[in-house]
Design a protein around this nucleic acid. Structure first.
Lengths: 341, 341
DNA sequence: CTGAAAGCGCTTACAG
DNA sequence: CTGAAAGCGCTTACAG
């Protein structure tokens, strides 16, 4: 078996130096020699040892990608789109799941592999990422956070969720809705606060107030941000006397659960209630009627991320953190409509 | 900045050799010295260069994982479960998407990184993997294929889809169904043939024949294995005079689309028609009623794969390919029920 | 515990 | 085009 350039050179019948020069595209070689080496590479499948290459000072051309989880389709979609873009630009990428408490080990692994940069995709436990960013800084390794706004000192590319919510509530206001039920939009995370501020700005622009025009229920025991939680919320809201006419959810799953929940109680969507999700995943097409949602613009996010990332590689670290907001896109479908008279 | 063991040793005030011995857990060192080095590692975050380590002959302890796509949740779930198990066993893993025609480049990348083994997860284009397996063999690198049965010479861990279909159709036969509509189960791929043979064996055990007891429609123009395709199939079947009473689908998406399609035409599920999916994804809980499906046993698959994989690493290549079938689990829900009289 | 030395697989001048 | 040499960052005997 051919293990090294030396083995390979012997096999081709050339000097190690010559083979190496062909491999690295150096000038001053006869076309015939180049062809001979390339054909032998095809035949034997020889690949130079990446470890030795890098030891000699070659860039690893590798980016480490940390994802919060592989169970959330939007996170995975961003990782996939980013990996593809990076590959087009000649960079390999390694995807690892960052479990809470496990970030240190993953970052160490990436650092030992001398990655050119590290990307974080998702919403991570408070504080965990901030420590890792400091570690990366010590090693002069650039980073980029995708999705999570508000980490101090972090270079960030994230969806403008406030804007998304403002557009969505604006759309419902145009249909005449004046009372909004919030589904799963509770808590104090940055992501929720951004949505709330977006809802508020749309309401205020119409002379309404957040406190006056929204209702929120939180049956904590069932909380899970999934279909079932949406269903439970719909049942709870259906019992209220001043039931809102429009509902906006934290995500598409909750919205679809709520939509089914309302339908099971014989409420018609959108005639009796309008329901909207967030993220615009494939599942939005599943219910009848299709779910109005807010698209995350995943491809644009990945493109922006790749561009910013490659601009950082091999340069001195940024002194000012970069923050780029991605504009979401409202996608109206038939789950939202005019208020019934 | 500390770049090498030499830098680091200077920083700690010890000889390079001594530090290296601490790093590699060699005996004959004073506890005090060990503590000194470990504390300095904590403080500085120093990690030895993985490339140099490996050049000195250390295992890379790295497994390359090729996935067919990151858009199919079951594929991603298997990759995630496998990555986790491998990490528990001390192995890192690199996930790359194998686009059609791009497999050679990915395998080369993995080989240049001297991975200990390569895993393929999903259903790949015919022939593409077979070539890569030969390449891996040349490099004495073990492999494992997850999901796709029937690749010559491949070590395989895959769901017993025939068994899953047999169990599912058996369940419907017990409810009294005698005519079955197939949704998206067409074509000649191994995976489809396995399902068909499973359906057939359940039917034959009851004295029925496949040709006599199944109906298949294939509105090719709409074919996509998604919700919408399921909906289209349901509409087509609803127009037939001898409409089957039970429907089994290629996957959960098609089944849910069909379920909604039937409901939109005022057919009641399961009173008028029973509908079943395959894979038992989260979305099975989304429709009303919940979708009967067949669980892929993803954790068991990942565990089995990890075990087989680690048994191959660092040994001579197997001469006989290994094939392990995973038993699926029928998950009955309310989308299937007795035949209406 | 130290320090000099060899070697892992590669690349890159350099003299021939 | 060849061949000997140095060096990337590490580990591992070895003599002190």
């Amino acid at each position: 078996m051919i293990h090294s350039v030396a083995d390979f050179a012997r096999h081709v019948g050339l000097a190690r130096t010559t083979v190496s020069r062909v491999l690295n595209g150096q000038p001053g070689l006869r076309p015939k020699t180049i062809a001979r080496v390339q054909q032998a590479m095809e035949r034997t499948g020889f690949t130079p040892n990446a470890y030795a290459l890098h030891l000699k000072g070659k860039r690893t051309a590798t980016i480490g990608i940390c994802v919060e989880t592989l169970l959330t389709p939007t996170v995975v979609a961003k990782a996939a789109a980013l990996q593809r873009r990076l590959r087009e630009r000649g960079y390999g990428s390694l995807i690892e799941v960052l479990e809470p408490g496990g970030s240190r080990r993953v970052i160490r692994h990436f650092l030992s592999l001398r990655v050119d940069a590290v990307v974080f995709i998702g919403h991570f436990v408070d504080g965990e990422i901030a420590d890792r960013l400091r570690e990366l800084e010590t090693h002069a390794t650039p980073h980029l956070v995708i999705d999570q706004l508000g980490i101090p000192g972090a270079n960030t590319v994230a969806l403008d969720r406030a804007r998304g919510m403002r557009d969505l509530v604006g759309h419902l206001l145009k249909y005449g809705h004046r009372m909004f039920g919030l589904l799963g939009i509770t808590g104090t995370t940055r992501s929720v606060r951004d949505r709330v501020s977006g809802i508020e700005s749309a309401l205020v622009a119409r002379g309404l107030t957040f406190a006056g025009a929204t209702r929120s229920l939180d049956p904590l025991h069932a909380r899970a941000n999934d279909f079932e939680y949406g269903r439970v919320l719909a049942r709870s809201f259906a019992r209220e006397k001043d039931r809102p006419t429009a509902f906006v959810a934290l995500n598409d799953e909750i919205a679809i659960g709520a939509l089914h929940g309302f339908q099971e109680l014989r409420l018609r969507v959108p005639r009796d209630v309008s329901v909207a999700g967030f993220n615009n995943q494939d599942i939005c097409l599943m219910p009848t009627p299709g779910l109005t949602s807010v698209d995350q613009q995943i491809q644009l996010t990945a493109d922006t991320a790749a561009e910013q990332l490659l601009a950082m590689v091999g340069r001195p670290l940024r002194t000012q953190p970069l923050v780029r907001l991605i504009e979401p896109l409202l996608v109206p479908r038939d789950s939202t409509g005019p208020v019934a008279r």
